[in-house]
Each structure stands twice: as structure tokens, then as C-alpha cells.
Design a protein around this nucleic acid. Structure first.
Lengths: 239, 239
DNA sequence: TGTACATCAGTGAACGCGCGTTCACTGATGTAC
DNA sequence: TGTACATCAGTGAACGCGCGTTCACTGATGTAC
């Protein structure tokens, strides 16, 4: 069990449409593949990314360990499926925040609010699902060896972020010249804050934490927004 | 072996003063504790944080597995020592960048350059020592159980960052009101960028990568610096 | 300086564990005629 | 609609592995007198 403050207001995202319960006592399970993924997700939730154990997942579903091999060639394929489920849930969390947005009528403000919503969705997912979040962004094993390999870009969520940034450019808030660095900056800040809240700053009370998220997203916006004075490194005012 | 672009210009930091070689063939090793830590560091470098294996470390030093128990109560104590070595090396990397700074005579500019140097030191460490970096910021095991627990704040490096931010306030670049959020924002961005460069963006050519680091640090500064227009959420200009 | 002896820092064998994976198998299901 | 048979999706036992850790031990070192 992760000892991380998980205040009730951070609502867990429903991972996939997959249920953890056995669907009958049939000899042929019917949906063993998804059941094993769901069991592995439960293991990750309970004890973190390293808790994915083939035998444990099979045990949890009530099936012999060997049965898993009808659906996954190797343990690492199961882990990969869980990783993918994590990425899907991440995008879902972002989309949820976007859907909750109420248009203000001001196109520029709406574009800003969309970027902030995406950031919130990201961070909320990390807080709600620390295990899946950690697993998703962990280097993983190569299929033909035991080497570590860079994680792939998280497709859907990455696209969401890019769309939001394009929106900011269209609306004149983000300078086209800053567009490229903006992806990295926004993603890095939001990801880093998630890690911080999960790690060194775990235990921050919910209210302070939510305010911190808000302020940080504000600072990101301030860094990205076009401004009157010359760009970075900003000439500081003398005291 | 980490498949991560590690261009030669990113110089590895010498971890501790500890050497990996046996210091003689004496029955009493003399410095087995440090030798085991060094061996574990080598394991992490080669195969990542999960590669710390007590028997493997002992094997590497040329000592019976059991001998390790004279110096560590449990495997987790060895891992903790390696984590600590990682944090020490992180601070050392930051201090190195600070030491390389040439004063400009302008106090405000110098304060800005110090913050940037700290950020560079952080990111360079991550790139040079991906295994130690990952291990350091990974949730770790509780001493009395197998639960995951939040990482402690990385003392020395955290202090370095705070000192730099205090300097920015003193010099009038950072508003006192933004001071609190600034730590989080700066740390999060720099940490997130490190993860990004190690993961999804591994393989970015060295030149592009260094420019990206610079631009991102610039955006951080832009977010933190006092500005004429009202603070976040910044009212965007109409197009 | 010499001796007795406690303590320190190792050795080597062994234990038990849970794991991923393989083997030979069998019951359930679906399809061709 | 009924039957034969291929295929699918499981079972249960077993293997070998490397691990963390414990046990009883012994050689080296340091210190008191």
C-alpha cells in the first residue's frame, strides 16, 4: 500500500472497462486476458509497479499460473499491457478535466483554461494512481533482452498537450517561436510536480496541495505567455 | 545497460571517493562497507536500480555473500546507502556548475545565473547517471515492512535551490509573494525535464538537447521574474 | 617484549521461498458434412 | 439435427534458478597485564 496522502476529493479513474470479478465458473473463462490485466492493475495499486507477478495475477483471477500463457507470451507482455492501461487512464483523466470546462466566451482565456485543465488532469491522475503513474513512466525491459529502454512518448496525452498549445498559438497567447520549447516546459513542470507531490511533498494537506497545483500552472502560463519586456534571460530590474 | 544517449560532453560525476578495486588480498578487507556500496553503484550503472542484489555485490568485491551482513543489517540498508551516494553526487554536480560560474558584476544577473547553474547541474547529473538518478527519486521500502514510502527531501540539493531562490528575492528579481511556489516550480520543471530527456526524448542529439535545457531554464526564469503586467493567471492580449 | 584472550571480520554450507516457464494432459467449444 | 473431429483454453505437476538470510565455524587483530 502506497503511503501517500490520497484525499477523497481526488477521484480515482476507472481503468479500462475491465472488471476484476470472475465472470462465472466456466471452464473457459471468457475474458481471461482482460481479467489478468485487471488483476495486475490491482497488484500495482496495492504494492507498486514491482508487484506485478504472473503467478499472483493468475491466483487472483482463480486460474492456474500456466493459463496466463494462452494470452501473454511472457510476463513482460502483461506488464506492457498494464502500462498501456495506465496511459489510457492518464488521457481519460485529462479529457475529464477538459469536459468539465465551462466556456467563458473569451477565446484566449478558454485556450489558457484548456491547457490548465490538461495539467490538472495529469497531476490528478498521478495522485489518484501513483502505482500506474510510476509504472507508466518507468524505463521498461526490451523484448529481446534485459536491457532498459527509453519509454515511448505517451501518444494520446502527448497529442492532447500539443493540441492545447496549438490553441494558445492560434489565439495569440503563445509566441510561435516558443512553441517547441513550450511542450517540453509544460510537460516537464507538470510531470515534475506530480513526482514531487507523490514523493518529497507527500503529506501536504489537500488544500495547500491544490493551491500549489494552481499556482504552479499559473507560473507555467506566465513563462509561456507573450510579454512586453524582452524574452529570457529576462533583464532583471535593479533594486 | 541503459540505452540512453550519453554524449561525451556530459561528464560523469565521481561517486564518493570510493574505489571499486580490492585493496589487497587481506583476510580483513579493510573497507568492505564502501567496497560493497561501490559495487552496488556499479550494478545500478550497468542494469538500473533493480540490479542491486546483495549476492552480486559481494561477488563483485570477491567476498562471500554472508560477509555483507557485518556491514549492513539488511539488503535495504545497502540500497539506502547507494541512494544516499546518489544524492551526494547530485549536490556535487550542482556545486560544480556553480563553481564554474564567472561573476558578471551585476548582482541580479549573477543571481539568475546561479539558479540556472543549479538547474543545469541537476539535469546533467540525471543524464550522466540515469540509474542513480532514478533510484534516488524512487519510492523506497519501509524498514519494518514492505510498504512503499515517500522519498525524503534531498537535503543538500534542496538547500542549494532554496539559497539560490533567496538570492533572487534579495536582488529583486523574484517577488517575495512568489517565493514559496518558486521552489516547487523550479524543482518540478528541472526534474521533469530530466525524466523527459531520459525517457520519451532520449535520443535527442546533444546539441538540440543542450539548447532545450537552456530554453527551458529560460522559461522558468520568465515565469518567476517580476513583470509589469498583473500576475497569473495572466490576462492574455486579444488578437 | 611476550602471552592470553576477547573481539572483529571473514568463510562455506545450507535453508526455504517464490518465481517464470515448460511439460504432458484434458475438458469444452465450434464447425463440416 | 446428429455426429466426428480439430482446435481452443484450461489443469496440475515439475524444474531449475537465484535470491535473502541463517548457522556454526575460524582466522586475524588488538589490547590488558
Amino acid at each position: 500500500v502506497y503511503i501517500v496522502n490520497l484525499p477523497s476529493d481526488v477521484h480515482a479513474v476507472n481503468i479500462l472497462g475491465v472488471s476484476d470479478s470472475k465472470t462465472g465458473d466456466r471452464y473457459h473463462h471468457g475474458d481471461l486476458r482482460n481479467a489478468l490485466i485487471a488483476a495486475a492493475v490491482a497488484l500495482v495499486r496495492a504494492d507498486g509497479p514491482d508487484a506485478i507477478v504472473l503467478r499472483a495475477a493468475a491466483r487472483r483471477v482463480g486460474v492456474s499460473a500456466n493459463a496466463a500463457y494462452r494470452h501473454f507470451d511472457r510476463l513482460s507482455d502483461l506488464i506492457e499491457a498494464v502500462r498501456q492501461a495506465g496511459f489510457d487512464a492518464l488521457s481519460a483523466s485529462m479529457l475529464k478535466e477538459l469536459a468539465d470546462l465551462i466556456p467563458t466566451g473569451d477565446a484566449a482565456m478558454d485556450a489558457i483554461l484548456r491547457l490548465r485543465a490538461i495539467g490538472r488532469g495529469y497531476i490528478h491522475f498521478a495522485l489518484a494512481e501513483p502505482g500506474l503513474f510510476t509504472l507508466a513512466f518507468r524505463g521498461h525491459q526490451d523484448s529481446n533482452g534485459h536491457q532498459y529502454v527509453a519509454t515511448d512518448p505517451p501518444d494520446a496525452s502527448w497529442n492532447l498537450l500539443n493540441t492545447a498549445l496549438d490553441g494558445l498559438v492560434e489565439v495569440g497567447v503563445l509566441a510561435p517561436a516558443d512553441r517547441t520549447a513550450a511542450v517540453t516546459n509544460a510537460w516537464a513542470t507538470v510531470h515534475g510536480l506530480s513526482v514531487l507531490l507523490l514523493g518529497p511533498m507527500a503529506g501536504t494537506p489537500a488544500a495547500a496541495r491544490d493551491e500549489l497545483i494552481d499556482t504552479t500552472l499559473g507560473l507555467v502560463m506566465r513563462g509561456l505567455a507573450i510579454r512586453a519586456d524582452p524574452p529570457a534571460p529576462a533583464k532583471p530590474r535593479k533594486r
